[in-house]
Nucleic acid binder design. Sequence first.
DNA 1: TTGTACGCGTTATCAT
DNA 2: ATGATAACGCGTACAA
Lengths: 334, 334
Amino acid sequence: MATIYEVSKLAGVSLATVSRVMNKNARVSDKTKKKVLEAMDTLGYRPNAIAQSLASNCSNSIGILVSELSGAFFGQMMSGIETELRAAGKHVIITTGHSEEEKEKDGIEFLIGRNCDAIIAHVEAVSDEYLIEINKGKVPVYSMSRHVEALKDKCISLDNEAGGYLATKTLIDLGHTNIAYIAGPQFKADASNRLQGHKRALKEHDIEFDENLFYIGDFREIGGSAGLKHFLDEKFNFTALVCANDEMASGAMKYAREHNINLPEQLSIIGFDNVIFANYLYPTLTTIDNPVDEMGKMAAQLVLRDVYQQKKLEIERVFEPTVIVRDSVSKLTN
Amino acid sequence: MATIYEVSKLAGVSLATVSRVMNKNARVSDKTKKKVLEAMDTLGYRPNAIAQSLASNCSNSIGILVSELSGAFFGQMMSGIETELRAAGKHVIITTGHSEEEKEKDGIEFLIGRNCDAIIAHVEAVSDEYLIEINKGKVPVYSMSRHVEALKDKCISLDNEAGGYLATKTLIDLGHTNIAYIAGPQFKADASNRLQGHKRALKEHDIEFDENLFYIGDFREIGGSAGLKHFLDEKFNFTALVCANDEMASGAMKYAREHNINLPEQLSIIGFDNVIFANYLYPTLTTIDNPVDEMGKMAAQLVLRDVYQQKKLEIERVFEPTVIVRDSVSKLTN
DNA sequence: TTGTACGCGTTATCAT
DNA sequence: ATGATAACGCGTACAA
């Protein structure tokens, strides 16, 4: 691989001049610039990113920490981030936390050790205090889908409480009053906020929260099946079901079909996230839209602005959820 | 951040010695080793990965190129790769190619520019020749899900032809003879190989390949809906449908339901890949298993062995597909 | 506008 | 076993 030194020799200029034409900031005469460019071309010169990083103390890489690499939710999120960052010539280093405190911390320190200029993390198990503490260090850690007041300038999140409210309110407006709820793991901030929204909607309509109609799932299909099975086995009375994400809704729908429950006539189901396959389920899933790709894009822009002093776009930090009405929910008929 | 220099000063040894205790290869006396370790500890020393890379000419990072970051298929693939690599202390830099030749080349060169020690690529648009050519360079490029004979030591792939054969054969064995086929984009090697397998199965059973019952989709849900719509609009006669991947099968199933076609009584549908949601569709999707996560893991092991001289595991380069029987396929009843 | 020289934090090659 | 010292490839004051 040709180095900057060889380029300078071929072009008959100094190392510094070559460096200057690369980092367009300094002024170089057109003549010499042309000579250098030509030399680069004939040598097929490619700057060594590692050496650049070492000298400039800037790696042009952004660390991303997600819970899982698979799953529609994270896929869309990563996609939003990477597209935006790549267009700006940055690159992403991706690793996983698996929703476990130790692994999440490991992941973040791993990314710091890799000299990332910033980290965008979707963490669920570490404490707010840890996030605050780690942010006192050199590399800024941005939080996705989780709001920490002390770090609000570094958070991009959906108003999950409003989303949870919206989901339940949608069912109530259709006449349902016996509404079961399958929640996500409550140590996860978004899961807990969604539940709070659910409770607020109930309260607002004088419906008492019923522990019997509450089940904590795992945000995966199996959690939805297990939750619905639980409610049915116990013969509890309900006409509608809120699932705290679409995967669980899918699992619940599968279980319902296997047990000959007509959807949505006998049971209305609403999901959360509006992942891609929600529109291909049967019946198509009514759900709460969670624009994760947009949020990922926004997080990337935030980093570009704060860390690399690029652009000056308006940053939207808290996204508002909306209902996507499809076929899995119907009016309560007596 | 403490540097190796400060550690050496505090421990009262030279830079070289500190470096030696880090890279456990060389022999250092237990006494000095202990001193150094203590110094590192009190200073909270963390080696600078960038500087290590520059000096050792090894970045400990592996580039991954996928078509998309979202989608069950790529999610599982990345997950398999990352888990294995991370456990070995390596990290992944992920970027996308979007199935377009220019972007795929861009992506690969981007990763090379980032000094990746190796690249694992799922490419679809670039030519075999390009892959061969790029592999003459310093950084080895491994290919996922695409077999290139001249590069067979660097390829991890599913026998897609056998899979395509298996899918169609499954239907034939159930009595179907009018079998429609929705293919993937034919410039993609896996799509083309699956189709070849389909044709072989037909031929083997003296069924003529019917252009009318052939449609080229896009590997996404929409392609499946469009394909089935096409066949139905033209009123072609068929009792079974092979979709070259599960997404298209999902799209076709949705379209079928919307047009009151009973599945699988009136139409048997088989998919390909066995992505996670295949088991949550209605009816649950019979499909060809494609162990992408296993293949990702294997690719990672291959890199670990060839590039980092780790382990000496047996590498499995070509995986055999199997049928996963579920509910979307039934016997032909006259 | 251009060139010189030093620094970035390691590894690696010699000596000792 | 340990210590100097030269790379590694580039950015950047400072000088010219």
